[in-house]
Amino acid sequence: MKAAAGKVAQLLVVMFLVSLGTFSLTSLMPGDPAVAILGDNQSPEAYAELRDKLGLNEPLVERYFTWLGHVFQGDLGTSMVPPNEDVTSLIGSAFAVSIELAVLALVVALVVSIPLAMISARRPDGLLDRAASATTFGIMSVPSFVSGLVLIALLVNQLHLFPRVGWVGVTDGLGQNLYHAALPVITIALLEIPTFTRVLRGDLVRTLQEDFVLSARAKGMPAWRIMIFDAFRPSSYSLITVLGLSLAQLIGSTVIVETLFSLPGMGRLVVSSASQGNITVIQGAVLVIAACYVLINAGVDLMYSVIDPRIRRVGA
């Protein structure tokens, strides 16, 4: 219990530092927000007035705490670019898209890579292992815009299986939503499958040499059962680490895939805001992404202790 409280306190400190860093870094970004908003052919007075209105003339620390106070109320401010939307809802809808893409892609990647890794690990350097290794290596070396384009050419243009572009939210029907999400999800999953497969295969091969696997065989357990019930769980630590990292990364940086399929996700939001000097949006987005990193890391730690009773006891 004490350990859990310590963990939470640690998380809060990290979050505080992250918000501080986010805020000051974006304040240091080149370019004048006033110019960004008004365009570059207005009078100096107009810029000054706007800066004042935006509170840009206050000291940095004061601005930070004002901003933080609003953040706590769920208010990330308004966009600096017309039509000056509410940043919270702007990020909210983009985040929903990104998280759905990321989670679905990871699920697909796991569904493919876990069995693939198990098949490979059964006979290391066997025919299946080498075939799987060659395939994953091949996939790994194809950039996502190429694989995405190939998928589009094949599944959209030739077979007409999926829509070309666009996004339909879950609120407009799950079927349509998944139908539109399918191609980008597959494109992202292809990126992750090689890593997942390799990491898990390596750990499985090592675990399968452990004495407890031999002793499970001596108990008469069939090979597939040993693989799933004995070897998998103790072999999943690295996979979980990689999974956490991927999830955090996917939330903010799938710009290529989002662009390719015209999806309104976090990546495109951040990129377009950055090019417009839309500081409030960038601040909000970076904060949300950073928070995801922190929470996902905490989640990964928690998973370790769920999987491994030895870690569990240390925390207790």
Binding site: E210, D211, F212, L214, S215, A216, R217, A218, K219, G220, M221, F229, D230, R233, P234, I307, D308, P309, R310
Partner: peptide, 30 residues
């Protein structure tokens, strides 16, 4: 035969037990 009519015990009792499995489950599954 394996585990039923012929059984085996190993040198290192720690590494021959699955670290993430309860003691009892080791026996009940057999």
């Amino acid at each position: 035969y394996l585990g039923a009519r012929i059984a085996m015990i190993f040198q290192d009792p720690l590494s021959s037990l699955n670290p993430v499995k309860l003691i009892g489950v080791h026996i009940t599954e057999t």
